[in-house]
Write a protein that binds this DNA or RNA. Sequence first.
DNA 1: ATAATTATTTAGGCTAATCTAAAAAAATAT
DNA 2: ATATTTTTTTAGATTAGCCTAAATAATTAT
Lengths: 218, 218
Amino acid sequence: MKYSSSKENYLKAIYHLQGESKMVSTNSLAASLQARPASVTDMLKKLKKEKLLHYEPYLGFRLNQEGKKVALQIIRKHRLWEYFLVKKLHFGWDEVHEMAEELEHLTSTRLIDRLDRFLEFPQMDPHGDPIPDANGKLSQLKQTSLLNLPFNRAFTVSGVSGQSQEMLEWLGQKNIRIGTRLEVRNKLPFDNSVEIKIKNQLPVTLSEQVAKNILVHE
Amino acid sequence: MKYSSSKENYLKAIYHLQGESKMVSTNSLAASLQARPASVTDMLKKLKKEKLLHYEPYLGFRLNQEGKKVALQIIRKHRLWEYFLVKKLHFGWDEVHEMAEELEHLTSTRLIDRLDRFLEFPQMDPHGDPIPDANGKLSQLKQTSLLNLPFNRAFTVSGVSGQSQEMLEWLGQKNIRIGTRLEVRNKLPFDNSVEIKIKNQLPVTLSEQVAKNILVHE
DNA sequence: ATAATTATTTAGGCTAATCTAAAAAAATAT
DNA sequence: ATATTTTTTTAGATTAGCCTAAATAATTAT
């Protein structure tokens, strides 16, 4: 099936609002889409007729299996294009959202699958969100290395890979361990070292080698 | 200014029909867009109101400077994306047109300029058509070598480079000279030699070395 | 020069996606 | 439990882009 950009935007917004399976209200969807509640009601009727969601007037609505499947494909496209924009065209992770909002509505599945291959099947987008695969499956833990992090957003250290004892000790001295909350403040372009900030501590600079091995999630 | 996809398609189609500055008729545009003449008349009124073309009812129409400028930017996007699809995603040159028809309507100028850089400023798309630069300038002669030609489309020989006297003579015997119209029939994968056909003549096979030196345009 | 044909425009409708204003239902507060 | 407030839906309009059928203008053929 092929859906209009507008319908796709509705499905995506509902998906984000409903989480695993919460009921969504007309007003919250209207707010998240910057549209009027009346417009939302109109569209809900259409999406219901197309069997993409359950909808009981006045009670709320939620995507059904088919609706989720479609939403996940749009999210897949959005995140793959964001990855492309950052990794290949060298945009900043904070500049790509709007462009991806357009790119996600391109219809060719062959195109997106080739793009996926070209990018070597990335697991996470530049914001650390997981990229659904061609079947809509999300990789469970959205874990990524400190190197790929957006600035000034809090993450939790979830693992350290390829570590030597010395490095772990040094990290321990700086209070960097599993569970530590931190934010990346800056990335120095000349050597890819990374400045991080832990609450109530002085900033710390980590070399590319070290940063690469620190795995985090939101 | 931002124009709808539909308007962009009209501008592009008119551009292709009018060549340098021929008047275009309602019917020919309708045919090329697969639309009804009445729809074309509707749209012409809008495009005239937006000062993108000259239009006298019953007499015909042609893009003005502004209209040409917009058309060239769409063509630029189309051809750059085609180049991307072929060179980076490894689609065949004959598979990319439809995808590019969608991609050409993306609005971000920054995106297309970065793509241009990423692709290293290609001059020609995979069909040998010239790619307008960011200012809409077309590299004057869309001249390319026989080696890069699509099959079964007529081209005119516009130059021969790196030539030895012997080669020119040999080409002369085969009636290949500036102005000759020819089509490429086949390209042999094992040695990159090229089979060409000139009207009313037997096919001729050219080695990669020779084909490389023959420059043609449409 | 006039009739026949072809091209173009006008008039009026349709659909998707939006909106505003008013009505109706549900939730909340006293 | 009733009144008030909030949420949601309905009713009716609007715009862009398309359509068909009919009217009009231009071209062509006799």
